[in-house]
Design a protein around this nucleic acid. Structure first.
Lengths: 168, 168
DNA sequence: TATTGTTATACTCTATAACTATA
DNA sequence: TATAGTTATAGAGTATAACAATA
């Protein structure tokens, strides 16, 4: 299976290629990279990140990580920081500055937990809710841009495969 | 299309949920996130990055970005920095420190271009070639880990969809 | 004028280790 | 003892703007 997976496609490997004076864009050989899932994943992520900043919600001064936390808190009002981090797959230390930024903009609030004085119950403020409503068109446009070359079925397949990659 | 794409799946939206004292892992609702391609893409990328460091070539002290450049130069001996950056989709300024690191380890060498004194002709050294041979099993293991829940056909589909996302 | 490589700077993202307060 | 939040630190990724040397 391994061998099959890592065999580069059509392009033709040039492991025996000689040094050229110049390599024109059209004659670029991606070699092993072309067959590496990790490589394509990274490129897609970079593309999505840039789309988020131009077409997407980044226009409103929010980062992907901040939006993720905001949506997570919206769906789970009263969740604490450790819980949100676990659900998002990120360390609780990473969340601190994200929530700091969201709280500075008054989109999220740290309220005292009624049951555990160590933790904060996170909630989306009214301002946060209207912010989410306002950026929704940009979020939609961003998602549309990512799938501009795919059918709805292909988009669903892609999400399914990505989810399986992460699942235990 | 937009509406369809962003409709969250089964789980059931809790936009009307009331604040809870605690939110247990099992009762987490990912809300809108569950249907966002950008979200799943980011999680998959984080997973792949961590797999690269544990199972994968990261064990040999190389980063994903460095390996990408190394493989690109291997496939295109004599390519210059701007060309490599363009092929990899990253800015030429970003490449400088990556190539610095590879050159420090003597895996890649900046040789003078015979045709343009502004540019460097990049080549993989003998040490670089043997390094690539040596890490190959780890690279294979890493790729295998990413697709551990997929068939070979699904893996090919995933790569195809990711490539289409990035393509113009 | 335009391009190559470089530097400085800045902004994402992520984590680990150690600390305080509380359970 | 263990957990929640925080801080300090570090390292991965990315880009833009400006400069010197060269085309």
């Amino acid at each position: 299976m391994t061998d099959q997976e890592l065999t580069p496609p059509a392009a033709g490997s040039s492991s025996t290629a000689e040094t050229r004076d110049a390599v024109e864009p059209d004659t670029i050989d991606r070699g092993l990279l072309e067959g590496l899932l990790g490589y394509h994943l990274r490129r897609a992520e970079v593309f999505a990140f840039q789309s988020f900043g131009s077409t997407g919600p980044g226009h409103e001064g929010i980062s992907p990580g901040q939006l993720g936390v905001l949506l997570m808190v919206q769906a789970n009002p009263g969740i604490n920081q450790t819980g949100a981090g676990r659900a998002l797959g990120i360390d609780r230390s990473t969340l601190v500055s994200i929530i700091d930024a969201l709280e500075d903009r008054e989109l999220v609030e740290r309220t005292p937990s009624p049951t555990d004085r160590r933790s904060h119950a996170l909630i989306v403020t009214a301002k946060g809710e209207s912010f989410l409503k306002r950026i929704r068109p940009r979020l939609d446009a961003h998602e549309d841009e990512l799938v501009r070359h795919m059918t709805a079925a292909e988009r669903a397949t892609l999400i399914d495969l990505l989810r399986r990659m992460v699942s235990p």
